[in-house]
């Protein structure tokens, strides 16, 4: 039986979809991936769809499900490498994958996940430091 491999890389799980997904295969992936997130305690899931030519509403729903389920298990999901034609089609279809993070490629996806985990670990909220205030705080 066909099966999509799930690789573990440090704190993350990496799935590269390279075959044409039909429904059963996609649903198996959803189940297996969630089981793996739970078993390994992964903090992030990267789904590489750069080789996928078609994402229809069913596939979109599976990706959304994986993101929501992973979140319940405290893991973030990033979809990487979506083809331009696929993105345009999804928008036209009205499917914008809310709640799913996206990145251009696996490398950027990793960076994004790292960033999210770090901000998760450090509880101190140091707001936005792009506009540092100079000196005059309390004395006013």
């Amino acid at each position: 039986m066909e099966r999509i491999p799930i690789l573990k890389m440090g704190h993350f799980l990496l799935v590269t979809i390279q075959v044409d997904l039909y429904d059963r295969l996609a649903m198996d992936l959803e189940a297996n991936l969630i089981r793996e997130v739970n078993r390994t305690g992964a903090k992030g899931v990267l789904i590489d769809i750069s080789a996928v030519e078609i994402v229809d509403s069913f596939m979109g729903r599976i990706i959304g499900n994986i993101a929501s389920m992973s979140k319940l298990l405290d893991a973030q999901t990033v979809v990487v490498g979506m083809q331009p034609a696929v993105a345009i089609t999804l928008v036209e279809l009205g499917l914008e994958l809310p709640g799913v993070h996206t990145a251009l490629n696996v490398e950027r996806g990793m960076e994004l996940l790292q960033g999210m985990i770090i901000s998760d670990d450090i509880i101190i909220d140091d707001d936005d430091d792009t506009f540092p205030e100079k000196g005059f705080d309390k004395d006013q």
Partner: peptide
Amino acid sequence: IKAVSATRLMGA
């Protein structure tokens, strides 16, 4: 809005 949504789906 469509252009923006599609760009976001690509991860930008």
